[in-house]
Design a protein around this nucleic acid. Structure first.
Lengths: 216, 216
DNA sequence: TCAAAAACCGTACCAACGGTATGGTGAATC
DNA sequence: GATTCACCATACCGTTGGTACGGTTTTTGA
């Protein structure tokens, strides 16, 4: 009952690396079992089909990410009482952590699935959606907390909450395309700057609305 | 020599819609030819393989986008002399245009390819890369122009140039996942706000002459 | 220790898909 | 009026995801 878990884990390791490197469709089962040193029967003993493989890969990925977010933003909370400072620290740590992770296995399982929806069943897609919903809700929570201390007028908190995820996913794509995973870190820091600017109301006050809204 | 072009066009239309909806791998040739009302032989008469189909789809997509960018940012230039205002107008128009396009066929061919690299040959991947390089260079050009008028200290122009593309691609993913293409417009507007904030924070430090005149 | 369950292996097979090959045919074009 | 264009029909090939089923070894709980 223990060796089975280990083999399962090994299959998932190999599959994840392959999927991030070349997509789900281009990752054949034959290739996975060859690297894992098992047979096709062995594979299908653990996973009834490719969809279940996807399901467990998503679960693994989302769990790992959830832990990571708890880590960095929890650490931010530990190091600063002020919600804005805590969040900014969390973002800095997130940037560093992502830079490290992306340099090893560039890619996002969740994003890679969304562009190949029809390859997966409803359950897999729903899992990626739930993860995304949870992530944006978390971000929004942080921002609302900050907004209570630093009232920011004219800032769309929902859009701002979604921006980080967008910038990360976009940066991953950019990084993959350019062969430079470092873009992810830069974009997270760019987001950090956006948050700083959004909640520094003193700047808002010094600039007359007529000037900034001239282009509206 | 005319009917051939028309059929070719029809195949590309069908393929593009299918690829954006369910990914390149999940789009079978059988399915395309069924919808186009031709046979397999007919398909391979026009495209020697699936890679050439991809190549022409990318070309179509990038051309259309290039035209769109010229349109919106050109219009911005027409409506305002100030580079910042011109850019902000361009972004507003871009947001509207993208909202319209995405509501019809949500997705980005270039991004969809990057997560399935191995399905395509070098040429296709290189085309998407060149498009991305051109796009960020264009953005950077606009920002440098703006920075000449509104010196912004502590702003990473390269990162800021890349942010828009990241936010759009990320928002497309988010939109696809949530079934709401409207996210793209919101993120472009969020970027617009980021640009505004980035170049207004310098106003109190280094006040440009144009600002003093406008304030009077 | 021993039977049962878990963790596989081997082989054979199927349908779908991308792609090739070959030999046509009606229509447009030069 | 010959040639090229724009296809159609049929047959075939290799790969891949997946099924079926029976056999074997390894682990484990009683």
């Amino acid at each position: 009952m223990k060796k089975g878990v280990e083999t399962r884990q090994r299959i998932l390791d190999i599959a994840e690396a392959a999927v991030l490197a070349k997509g789900f469709a281009a990752t054949s089962i034959d290739e996975i079992i060859a690297e894992a040193g098992i047979t096709k029967s062995g594979f299908f003993y653990h996973f009834k089909d490719k969809n279940q493989l996807a399901r467990e890969m998503v679960l693994r990925f989302t769990d790992a990410n959830e832990r990571m977010f708890n880590e960095v933003f929890g650490r931010g909370r530990e190091l600063a009482d002020d919600p804005l400072q805590a969040f900014l620290i969390g973002l800095k740590l997130l940037a560093e952590t992502l830079a490290d992770v992306q340099s090893k296995h560039p890619g996002c399982i969740v994003a890679s699935i969304c562009y190949q929806e029809r390859l997966f069943d409803r359950e897999v897609v729903e899992m990626t959606r739930q993860f995304t919903v949870g992530w944006t809700a978390r971000l929004r929570g942080y921002l609302v907390e900050i907004a209570n201390v630093y009232p920011a007028t004219g800032v769309d908190l929902d859009a701002l909450a979604e921006s980080l995820g967008c910038m990360i996913d976009g940066a991953i794509i950019l990084g993959k395309m350019m062969g430079d995973p470092g873009r992810v870190e830069r974009q997270v820091l760019a987001y950090r700057n956006l948050v700083k600017l959004s909640f520094s109301s003193s700047v808002h006050a010094t600039v007359p609305a007529s000037f900034l809204l001239a282009a509206e």
